[in-house]
Write a protein that binds this DNA or RNA. Sequence first.
RNA 1: GCGCCCGUAGCUCAAUUGGAUAGAGCGCCAGACUACGGAUCUGGAGGUUGGAGGUUCAAUUCCUCCCGGGCGUGCCA
Length: 576
Amino acid sequence: MSALHDHLRARLLAACQSLGIDAAVAAPLLRLDPPKNRDHGDVAFGAFQLAKAVGKAPPALAAELAAAVAADAVIESAAAAGPFVNFRFRRDALARDVLGAIQRGDAPYGRSTKGGEVVCIDFSSPNIAKPFHIGHMRSTVIGNALCRIWRHLGATVHGINHLGDWGMPFAKMMTAYMRWGSETELHQSPMRYMFELYKRYSREAKDDPALDEAAAKHFQALESGEDNQERRMWQLLRDESLKAFQGPYARLGVTFDHVTGESFFEDKMAGAMQRVTAAGVLEESDGAEVVWLKELGIKEPCILRKRDGTTLYHTRDLAAVFFRESAYRPTRILYVVGAEQKLHFDQLKGVLTKMKEPVAQAVEHVPFGLVLSRTEEGKWEKFASRAGNAVFLDEILDEAVAKVREVIRQKNPDLPDADAVAEQVGVSAIVFNDLKNSRIKDVKFDWDAMLTFEGETGPYVQYACARLSSILRKAEAPVPDVAAVDCAVLADAERVLLTMMDFGSAVQRAAEQSEPSCVTGHAIALAGEIHSYLRDHYVVGQEPRVRDARLVLVDCARKLLTTGLGLLGIAAPERM
RNA sequence: GCGCCCGUAGCUCAAUUGGAUAGAGCGCCAGACUACGGAUCUGGAGGUUGGAGGUUCAAUUCCUCCCGGGCGUGCCA
């Protein structure tokens, strides 16, 4: 993970051998962790498992190991504390190693050049029959962060926008438009207009079953593949939606490697169905074609073709898996989709498993919780804006940006480019909030807390970056190379350095668990440590030896925070 | 009914996958340099980790049951 850790592990392994423990036994058990309490040391080794393997009591083994690891140029001390061995690095070595790696852009602080994973990430995937609202944001920002995190680790990433541009929801939209729509109004404000049509359809369909029947007919006509009215309508509505989506995507800093919606798989479903049939797992049930998954513990069958002959979500997702498998050769296919669709992805994976397709093990659902807002009575329920039911993402971002603009007017009235900065900070506050907690948790959207920008927020981390940038601007010297400074003077920055050292494992965990909050948490922690450090440690005006060392520290902190925010899709302004 | 998820300080969440004295932010109380950004920092109060069993040297974490909340459950996505 770092040169320091490698060195420590080697010393520990040698110590094991000196105690007569077989290296092959010891090596896999030498896990180094940050201690629960940093006062104990920089790195800890819990001797439990190794002790069991060699038949000793953990505290006794820990004591022997501590005694067998003598101090050297890197290790300051090794001390047993019960069943743990706590190690401390020499402060100058710690600073030199961490800051040097950050300055050079070495992994894990910089982007890794090696990494064999090929990761498909299916995210955002809005339904083009509906407006881009707050509910779409979670998949979008989580997926975006995962793309960036995996790329940082050296993986080949395919970010895919699997647009909902096919199927019944779209057919309903089409039906509404064909009945009541006007092209002039559509072009004026496509998303809002479509939203109106959508609402009208929902209202009227309640009392008029003929609407849904008409929609089903239109979908059949669309799926017939003929060049008809439905197809032209589909093209028009799809184009307009895609254009409109560029707004939120640009604001959120999101890009895709492939925009292949459900419609893209229109001509690939027949092949997929053949493959399912050939595997001998397709069965007829009530006129539909299904795959039963009872032996995999799933009671509901996966329906691949409806009684009326048309396809479903599952059919297209299955075709998509096969397409991605042959086009990208992925080691993982991640679906960043709400937790309420767990069954769907269990079924998808189940069908592939039953077909004995190796790609089954690559398929992984990355679920997340809902977005909730607080009601008058203080209860949490599905998100509604403060005004009422308009839930367009743009409006939410606008409100956050407006609030930031006000804060800037109060605190930094002379800021150049204030509008651009307000946009960056406001949008990032919303994004950061979404990525702050474990993704499976519902996001509780508390406007009052969100718009104060104090504490664990995006602006808090950005503020740290701006403050560090400010110091670098005011310093009367350029940032030197680590090799040219006296790292011993950074002994007082140990907390900052140790937090920096955690960056690699945070990013690694974020990828392994598909959990961007690991990165968010690290950014908050590092921002907090550097803020605390700056309180009592000045840079400007110090004697050159101290100033230069601190300049390196400040510069590296700024770099690493910027990298962390970048992994989350968030910009780090120089001033705010 | 069945399946899955969640339950930790007043509120919102952590706890690096089973390890040391369960930590942060908000809120509350008390404070901070006539020097680099106060969107900050320092200190304090606040806990039977929903409940009961079990496994383990060790449980917020794993198992069983119960309680509370959410989501899903055959032709929507």
